[in-house]
Design a protein around this nucleic acid. Structure first.
Length: 190
DNA sequence: CATATGATTCTCT
DNA sequence: GAGAATCATATGT
């Protein structure tokens, strides 16, 4: 089981998912928070992805845009924010799952929660990140990046266990983490 | 028009 | 961990 996903680890989308950790998300010139958790969705072969098997509808059309566009998908009454990572017609993207916001208590430790907090809706779907009110700036660098299986995937094959969720070690704003093992304050960044 | 389906979240056990 | 709430889209009759 160990090197089953080795070929994925060298993939662009994985690199992007890791690079997004520590980036600051801005909306209309105002800082929303710093990214602490991302997930990679790697195209038509990924049965956990919205684009599994080449599925393409009005709903997920933005996933087929070229890298640098926002993809906002709505499910269970929640909005999810993704960044498209590949060339046109290659449906790969990185889901932004959690942000570190000011204050002790996590307020954006889930993909639905962060979009509700920041008022991110489908108006950003398909927009280029460099000409948009919603954009990223370099923030800090994680001390260490952990990885685990993705959250909430419903497929039953090997993709359910693929370690494509990336997060900042010890950061209290990552979703579904145990209290034990959290690092205090700024020790998760360098 | 009716029914099914989630890349979720909350609440309870 | 399991179940309900919830709602825009998709698909079937």
């Amino acid at each position: 089981m160990e090197n089953q996903f080795e070929y994925l680890m060298a993939h662009d989308t994985i690199a992007t998912a890791k690079a997004l950790l520590g980036m600051d998300l801005y909306l209309g010139g105002q800082l929303i928070g710093r990214i602490v958790e991302t997930e990679a969705y790697v195209g038509t072969k990924d049965s956990a992805s919205h684009s599994a098997g080449g599925r393409r509808t009005r709903k997920n059309e933005s996933m087929y845009l070229e890298a640098g566009h926002w993809y906002v998908y709505q499910v269970h009454g929640h909005n999810m924010l993704n960044l498209v990572t590949k060339e046109r017609d290659v449906p790969e993207a990185v889901l932004i799952r959690a942000l570190e916001v000011d204050g002790d208590i996590p307020q954006a430790n889930g993909p639905g929660k962060l979009t509700r907090l920041a008022n991110i809706t489908k108006i950003f779907d398909g927009q280029p990140i460099d000409q948009c009110d919603l954009y990223l700036k370099a923030g800090a660098t994680p001390v260490y990046i952990e990885q685990r299986a993705r959250i909430g995937v419903t497929c039953t094959d090997k993709w359910r266990e693929a370690p494509l969720c990336f997060y900042v070690r010890g950061n209290r704003h990552v979703s579904k983490v145990k209290k034990k093992g959290l690092l205090p304050g700024e020790e998760t960044w360098r």
